[in-house]
């Protein structure tokens, strides 16, 4: 079954055991595919749209993380554009931005919010 997205609340999405350090996994809430990136040194999870706008394929979660020009980024595995984990902004194209959602780790669980 798929978790339900509830407004204004933190929705549990997976456990920390599902995450891969310094890397991404994909999750699905309703019909939204979400890429989750876990950076252990910040003890933080970032949630971005999983659809790569340049290929229209759901692959963002399978990109490499890193930092570029002072921003923490993920590189699309298909055509290698970089997106800021913080706000989804594409570094190569100002007009492209991925949706992002607040996410947090509490205990063993990972939550995201639509706010």
């Amino acid at each position: 079954m798929t978790a339900q997205l509830k407004p204004d609340t933190w929705t549990p999405i997976c456990t920390t055991n599902d995450l891969v350090p310094d890397s991404g996994v994909a999750a699905k809430i309703d019909n939204q595919q979400i890429a989750l990136f876990y950076l252990p040194d910040e003890h933080r999870v970032y949630a971005l749209a999983n659809k790569d706008p340049f290929s229209n394929a759901n692959v963002i979660a399978r990109g490499l993380t890193g930092d570029l020009q002072g921003k923490t980024v993920v590189a699309s595995p298909l055509y290698k554009q970089h997106f800021s984990l913080e706000d989804g902004q594409c570094l190569e194209d100002d007009s492209v931005r991925l949706d992002t959602w607040p996410a947090r780790i509490e205990g063993d669980h990972v939550y995201i919010s639509i706010q």
């Binding site: 798929t2 978790a3 994909a26 999750a27 699905k28 809430i29 229209n56």
Partner: peptide
Amino acid sequence: LKRFRTFVNSPEEDDN
């Protein structure tokens, strides 16, 4: 093997 999941929270396939 746990990385080989399309979604960590769902057994669905990518409908795209």
